[in-house]
Design a protein around this nucleic acid. Structure first.
Lengths: 140, 140
DNA sequence: CTATTTGCAAAGTATTTGCCACCAT
DNA sequence: ATGGTGGCAAATACTTTGCAAATAG
């Protein structure tokens, strides 16, 4: 079974690459490519839209960022602290401000596996996202 | 808590409406609007693409169908047996053939609530989808 | 008969790709 | 030098919308 998942040659370190990463870090939550692009331009950066897309995709591939697809059909990305990179985890996202907490859920992992097994499914994978309103936003 | 979610005036019963519902029922899993449209045309039905979109959206609104967004940026729909309509549940979807099982997960519900509470989040909601390869497809 | 639904085509949005100039190594 | 990278613009793909004609109740 595909042991080597199409390995990309590890992106070269560039000014724009850093800019995109920083923009993503600066924003506490999930941001769309368009958002990041707008933020960078607003900040005076000279960067192209496609470049932003390419970097965000790279992050997602190398596991440095998580991607989730929102109901508007946009792909949103969030930078995962270098520690969490790669480690399996989920998110608790504020519907209002976009801030996100990294959370673990052994209970969920186990449940997913058990459920799949019960129905005879193999090669199990899953997506779990929890949405809510964070304390700060609730006060507003 | 939003008892009356923007109520649409209950769609009039038409030939096309039934066709769309049947097409969705015939397919065991999550299907995109484009899929359903293609299937209907292949079956000799005279129907427009936008009509398919409109009906699928209606189903989703009235809770008769579930919608999930796949990584390709498509919205896919699945008809929920009339019983399950509205009741909270999740899915175990076959990555290969698209077949889906309706599953419940009290453990997950509880975990989501507890996690949110721990971080002080309110008005909690969540999405959980489990993917795998079903027994039939595994044999192939 | 009247209001809703249909279907076509045009418009809109997010994302990808082609291509050439450019910069880090 | 030279091969990966950046930016622009054109190309895709999915979905939505405007509007006249067809249809349900």
């Amino acid at each position: 079974m595909t042991a080597s998942t199409s390995r990309s040659p590890a992106r070269r370190s560039t000014t724009q690459g850093k800019a995109v990463r920083e923009a993503l870090l600066a924003q506490q939550g999930f941001r769309s490519a368009q958002d990041v692009y707008a933020a960078l331009r607003a900040d005076g950066h000279k960067i192209g839209l496609s470049t932003v897309y390419r970097h965000l995709q790279s992050f997602a591939e190398e596991g440095t960022a998580d991607a989730i697809y929102n109901p508007d059909g946009e792909t949103t990305y969030r930078y995962c602290g270098d520690q969490a990179a790669g480690r399996h985890h989920h998110h608790l996202v504020c519907r209002d401000c976009g801030r996100a907490e990294e959370v673990e859920g052994r209970a969920v992992e186990r449940w997913a596996e058990e459920t799949a097994e019960k129905f005879g499914y193999t090669q199990v994978d899953h997506t779990v996202e929890v949405f809510g309103i964070c304390r700060a936003c609730a006060r507003k």
